[in-house]
Design a protein around this nucleic acid. Structure first.
Length: 271
DNA sequence: ATGGCTTGAGTGTCAAGA
């Protein structure tokens, strides 16, 4: 089972890129962020023609998230229950026995601003929500744009970014609290190239110079982490004309429906 | 120098991203 996350930065502009990427990589489940369109404007026809069904939580102009799957999504839940927030940032669904949360964490703009305080409050509520979901669903995957670079090695210039938004201690602590629920950052379960990032500024030739940050993550509960065989950033879409500023991240799991071998009974146990 | 691109809104030029 292949799970992916991709901040497309406008689905309207990126639909051709997405369709080409779905055709090339054939993921089972894709979490999209920054659709920047209302739910009613979602291009279901094109997505279904590509072999996917979509659970959409859209919003005009800003934010907006969706989960695309090749099999039916069940128990779809929009937003964070109990959080009064007009911004559409979360959609959750069950796909083939795996509970998938797709999240677009607030950017936070700059440390000390109202948007930064909103980001930290939002992360508190989100962490409670993820904890609740994990209680009910041991097979839990939390994918999305976290807008947090967890460690200095996730930043092209840790000195320049020290204490800045995406890297500040309160944000990194909030990320560690999510991991503290028992989730694993699947990317770090494997050897990775140095200077691996998922976002590069459009300005200053950021991508060509690999001046990036790793802020898009696939977090897995223990049951899923045990089945994870790989996690990688796909740089190909970022190389294309008119790209999203984010690259997709894909994690591979052994199929949850693979039959578990039944251990042989010891001789002495036989009748 | 708080800039540099890109998108959506809307037809000026600004908010927002990270």
């Amino acid at each position: 089972m292949k799970l992916a996350t991709w901040n497309v930065n406008s689905l309207k502009v990126r639909l051709p890129h997405l369709l080409e990427w779905l055709d090339r990589t054939r993921p089972d489940c894709v979490c999209l962020q920054e659709l920047k369109m209302e739910t009613a404007a979602f291009p279901h026809e094109a997505i279904e023609a590509a072999g996917y069904t979509a659970s959409v939580n859209g919003q005009k102009t800003y934010n907006g998230v969706a989960i695309l799957t090749r099999i039916e999504a069940a128990d779809v839940l929009l937003d964070i229950p109990g959080l009064d927030d007009p911004q559409r940032r979360v959609v959750t669904a069950t796909i083939g026995g795996v509970r998938v949360i797709c999240a677009y964490v607030p950017n936070g703009q700059a440390v000390g601003t109202d948007k930064y305080e909103y980001k930290l409050r939002w992360l508190d509520a989100f962490t409670r929500f993820v904890g609740d979901q994990m209680q009910a669903h041991p097979q839990l995957a939390v994918l999305g744009d976290y807008n947090i670079a967890p460690e200095d090695r996730d930043v092209h210039d840790p000195v320049a970014w020290a204490g800045q938004v995406l890297c500040s201690e309160p944000e990194r602590t909030a990320f560690q609290r999510l991991l503290g629920l028992g989730l694993a950052d699947s990317f770090r379960l494997f050897d990775q190239p140095e200077r691996s990032f998922t976002w590069w500024d459009y300005r200053m030739n950021g991508f060509r110079r690999n001046l990036g940050v790793r802020i898009d993550h696939v977090l897995l509960s223990p049951a899923l982490a045990a089945r994870c065989t790989g996690c990688a950033v796909d740089l190909e879409p970022r190389r294309q004309e008119r790209p999203s500023d984010h690259a997709p991240v894909t994690a591979e799991l052994t199929c949850p429906r693979d039959p578990t071998p039944i251990p042989a009974q010891p001789q002495s146990m036989r009748a």
